[in-house]
Computed example of a mutant assay.
Amino acid sequence: MAGPTTARSGGANASSGPPAAEPSRARWFRRLRLPLPGPRRRGPIIILILVVLLGGFAIWALYGSKWLRVEGVKASGTAVLTPREVVDAADVPMNAPLASVDTDAVARRLRERLPRIKTVDVVRSWPHRIGLKVTERTPELIMRSDRKFIEVDVEGVRFATVATAPKGVPQLEMTAQDAPSLHRFGNDRLRRAAVTAAADLPEDVRKQVRIVRVRSYDSITLELAGNRTVVWGSGERGPEKAKVLTALLKAARDARHFDVSVPSAPAVSGS
């Protein structure tokens, strides 16, 4: 009888001994009050680690590696300028990470250094090139300056000085030095009014214009081929005046003087 009792007592003592040591991984999670990562939690953690690793690799590839660096710059869209002039003025840093190139700064630098450029689109052409898509200003009028000519675009911007007058571009003569409107409007606005008058003409009439003369804001005159003169008046109602002048030139081919300053009441003389 004593033997079995002793055996049972010994078994009870064995089961109620000190607990086994807790694994260090479990203790760490318990100290941080985090749940143990069971099988269902391991998947998102692994995905997060992969995302972080891929993001770090992408940043290194863009900025730290030698794979995606500037090896060339190409300009397109030039007419008067040469692609070499545009590339040199852009001053894009070679061998720099393509992603780090400040495209806005490149565009701004081009417009400042080459006023002939009206717009430029700076694009990254992966993996190694910068593209410069240029739109140049074109002269609507020219102004004589000593023995050279200043080109003026459709916005009235004086953007270039050239030794030879571009073919087919009318000359602008500003004779408003003593006119009250010069002090009121300023040279820039008077110049824009003259440019607007020329731009409002249809192509076949514009080709006949030799001189656009500005005496005041309300006194713009066009001199056409064949010693013909057009009193344009102010720069207002330009499209309407251009339409009336086109009709008069066709109806009175022998006339020498045309007045469209009031387009609803035009006048023709000198036929």
Score class of each variant (00 low, 15 high):
residue 244 V to Y: 13
residue 196 T to C: 00
residue 211 I to K: 05
residue 270 G to A: 09
residue 249 L to D: 01
residue 55 G to N: 08
residue 174 M to N: 04
residue 104 D to P: 06
residue 99 A to G: 12
residue 145 S to N: 09
residue 61 A to F: 09
residue 113 R to M: 00
residue 190 L to I: 06
residue 249 L to C: 05
residue 111 R to H: 07
residue 181 S to C: 14
residue 33 R to S: 13
residue 15 S to W: 13
residue 163 A to Y: 06
residue 179 A to S: 12
residue 79 A to G: 05
residue 33 R to V: 14
residue 176 A to N: 04
residue 37 P to I: 10
residue 92 V to K: 06
residue 216 S to Q: 00
residue 114 L to I: 12
residue 168 G to H: 11
residue 216 S to T: 04
residue 1 M to A: 03
residue 82 T to N: 12
residue 34 L to Y: 09
residue 262 V to G: 09
residue 40 R to H: 15
residue 154 V to S: 10
residue 105 A to R: 07
residue 153 D to V: 01
residue 81 L to E: 07
residue 158 R to W: 08
residue 124 R to C: 01
residue 238 G to Y: 02
residue 100 S to K: 13
residue 237 R to T: 03
residue 53 L to M: 14
residue 12 A to T: 11
residue 41 R to V: 11
residue 97 P to E: 14
residue 85 E to S: 06
residue 127 P to Q: 05
residue 58 A to L: 07
residue 252 A to K: 13
residue 166 P to D: 09
residue 26 A to P: 00
residue 179 A to L: 03
residue 264 S to N: 10
residue 105 A to M: 07
residue 103 T to K: 14
residue 128 H to Y: 11
residue 171 Q to E: 15
residue 262 V to T: 05
residue 207 K to Y: 10
residue 100 S to R: 12
residue 18 P to H: 03
residue 119 T to M: 05
residue 208 Q to T: 13
residue 260 V to I: 06
residue 125 S to A: 14
residue 5 T to R: 06
residue 108 R to M: 12
residue 270 G to R: 10
residue 241 K to M: 02
residue 158 R to P: 02
residue 221 T to M: 06
residue 7 A to L: 15
residue 57 F to Y: 13
residue 3 G to N: 10
residue 15 S to H: 08
residue 236 E to K: 15
residue 77 G to D: 09
residue 228 R to A: 10
residue 123 V to A: 08
residue 20 A to R: 02
residue 98 L to E: 02
residue 19 P to I: 00
residue 21 A to G: 03
residue 146 D to N: 15
residue 121 D to E: 12
residue 178 D to C: 09
residue 103 T to L: 11
residue 6 T to N: 01
residue 53 L to H: 08
residue 125 S to Q: 09
residue 24 S to Q: 13
residue 142 I to S: 03
residue 156 G to E: 06
residue 11 G to E: 03
residue 256 R to G: 08
residue 45 I to V: 14
residue 96 A to Q: 10
residue 160 A to L: 05
residue 267 A to D: 14
residue 10 G to S: 11
residue 196 T to G: 00
residue 16 S to G: 07
residue 58 A to P: 00
residue 56 G to P: 04
residue 28 W to S: 12
residue 153 D to F: 01
residue 160 A to W: 01
residue 84 R to V: 13
residue 15 S to C: 04
residue 169 V to K: 01
residue 248 L to C: 04
residue 238 G to T: 10
residue 97 P to W: 15
residue 183 H to E: 13
residue 215 R to C: 02
residue 32 L to M: 14
residue 82 T to P: 10
residue 117 I to C: 04
residue 152 V to L: 09
residue 53 L to A: 15
residue 33 R to I: 14
residue 208 Q to P: 00
residue 268 V to H: 11
residue 138 T to V: 03
residue 145 S to V: 11
residue 53 L to V: 15
residue 223 E to V: 08
residue 214 V to A: 02
residue 98 L to N: 01
residue 53 L to Q: 11
residue 255 A to S: 13
residue 101 V to P: 03
residue 178 D to P: 02
residue 234 S to K: 04
residue 246 T to H: 15
residue 177 Q to D: 13
residue 258 F to T: 00
residue 216 S to K: 02
residue 233 G to M: 03
residue 118 K to M: 07
residue 67 W to S: 12
residue 115 P to K: 04
residue 271 S to K: 12
residue 235 G to F: 00
residue 27 R to D: 11
residue 59 I to W: 15
residue 162 V to W: 10
residue 127 P to N: 05
